[in-house]
Amino acid sequence: MNDKRDSTFAASRGSGEIRQKRVQVGQRQKQTGNDAHARYIQVRDHSFFYGTTQVLYDLNMDIPERHVTALIGPSGCGKSTLLRNFNRMNDLIDGISHRGDILIDGRSIYDPYLEVISLRKRIGMVFQKSNPFPKSIYENIVYSLRVAGRNRRAELDETVERSLRAAALWDEVKDRLRETAFSLSGGQMQRLCIARAIANRPEILLMDEPCSALDPVATGKIEDLIHQLKEEYTIIIVTHNMQQAARVSDRTAFLYMGRLIEYNDTEKIFTNPTEEQTEAYVSGRFG
């Protein structure tokens, strides 16, 4: 399995470096053990319904800060729903309801005193299909600042450069910031969306299959990026790609039919899962 991963990865640069980093982070996680960092996001008895259809069943999981947590599972297992619950994007859908709670930094996201908008400012999101706005590259990135009423030129310029550098896109687009975002390639667009998501310096980054529409080279770049970003952000990533989950994440949660089957360190999940179902899924026997 490792071989296969490496062969896929050969196209991208610096794969050795990445593996090293993960080991380091793993160590850090062991050090921080059970403290607040490890329980940065707490999912407590969380059930979720579309109308009368239950899609999530009493989930419980703690997501550590500044780590990459992957959500895997076959289509329809509820992993995207769970992801979209973290920033309450599911609110847009009619007839939803939930039970249980999700706490971020000890505070419920369903707290009626919490503005959804401020919750979403705190949690960036990258979607499956890159969705730059029909605006210039520059305006795409500063969008979150503009809607917050921050229009100071210097701050905007600074943000654009910082975000694009963080998304490893600066060198490629710095001369055409005023061009429409649609002039970028598919991989560039997705990185632009990541740059946009981190422009307002959120704490958490949600990624919903960010590489599913990209070719291997672009995928490699994004995965590199994820590795860099987790220094600063808590990342939760939904992916269908087992190798990707293995490559980028520190912790992996396997969901099946709306239930959390297994949630553990990534290495454990992929090498020695506790549950039979997890074993079957990660080895590709079903799903």
Binding site: I117, R120, M125, F127, K129, V147, C193
Partner: peptide
């Protein structure tokens, strides 16, 4: 207007009105 634009805007912390005026309407 593709739902992705709306979600993208809302996920960035824009209000519904800001989303409507800045993203949906121009598109």
């Amino acid at each position: 207007v593709p739902e992705a634009f709306r979600s993208g805007s809302l996920a960035l912390g824009a209000s519904r009105w800001q989303t409507a005026i800045r993203i949906v309407l121009p598109t």
